[in-house]
Nucleic acid binder design. Structure first.
Length: 271
DNA sequence: AAAAGGACCTGGTGGC
DNA sequence: TGCCACCAGGTCCTTT
């Protein structure tokens, strides 16, 4: 479900409600996420105060007194702020009960997400330490993409969806960014000029920034922690628009598959 | 080292 | 109504 804008939307939504709150109880209903939830997670977290909620790529980092809970929402995960007595429903796998009588509830039908506890710096965790730069920082530039892509034959779409190259760009925003940069998604990453990578880096930043401002993209079921849908789906130019006219030139949007993911593009606008 | 494909899961949709 | 194939906001791991 969530790419960078959706995770950032959730982060902003939960932050004011959880900062300074103590975790009074942890309820694990189903520990079988992508990696097993630590059976002793409750002992790790109980009575600790949440000091900050950060985001690294698509990971949420919930900083507590003596460690950090690293949460990834996978493909179908939601993080919802609920009142403590709300009955659990299907796929409600984990609750963090807070001292303000609210709780953070993780719901994830496909269970591709995870909730990991670390007492080290989370940025050094094996899942995070090799991640590429944040796209909305100045570390992420066309020059960076150009250098990292030299000699590589994979397609530019697969290249920018690789979190070791740049974090947070999933299938929706890869499609949208390539359209905004007028680059054909199947072009080999190693054969794209610096000038065009400058356009692509600018497009990625602009698309993600706008999506954050719109509260993310709600295609089916994304919502923030308060249950609000996003609005960026109204701005989509190509994603899920196969056969519909390009908003620039009117040609029908094409769809193909790349690495088992749906790709959408305009044959005329993107070269 | 890089590329390709499978693996992990549930649920929704569309065709017959 | 049922059954089946295929698709879905991700990404790690194994094999080539």
């Amino acid at each position: 479900m969530p790419e960078l804008p959706e995770v950032e939307t959730i982060r902003r939504c939960i932050t004011p409600a959880v900062i300074g709150q103590k975790v009074t109880e942890v309820i694990i209903r189903n520990p079988n996420l992508r990696w097993p939830v630590l059976p002793t997670l409750s002992d790790c977290l109980r009575e600790q105060t949440i000091s900050a909620v950060e985001r690294r790529g698509k990971y949420l980092l919930i900083h507590c007194g003596h460690g950090t809970l690293i949460v990834h929402l996978g493909m179908s995960g939601r993080f919802l702020l609920e009142v403590v007595n709300k009955p659990a429903e299907k796929h409600d796998h984990l609750d963090l009960v807070l001292s303000n009588a609210k709780m953070l509830r993780l719901n994830d039908p496909r269970r591709f997400g995870c909730a990991l506890w670390t007492e080290e710096s989370p940025l050094l965790h094996p899942l995070l330490r090799d991640l590429g730069p944040e796209p909305l920082t100045e570390d992420f530039t066309g020059g960076f993409l150009f250098e990292r892509s030299r000699g590589r034959s994979l397609t530019v779409k697969e290249f920018i969806m690789n979190s070791r190259i740049v974090v947070g760009v999933g299938n929706i925003y890869a499609n949208e960014s390539l359209f905004a940069a007028k680059i054909h998604p199947t072009r080999p990453a190693g054969r794209i000029s610096l000038q065009r990578y400058n356009q692509l880096a600018t497009a990625v930043k602009q698309v993600l920034q706008t999506a954050v401002e719109q509260g993310g993209t709600t295609i089916r079921d994304f919502c923030d922690a308060a249950g609000n849908a996003g609005y960026f789906q109204l701005e989509l130019q190509v994603y899920k628009r196969a056969g519909q006219p390009c908003r620039i030139c009117g040609q029908p949007i094409q769809t193909i598959r790349q690495a088992h993911r749906g790709t959408f593009f305009c044959r005329k606008c993107q070269r």
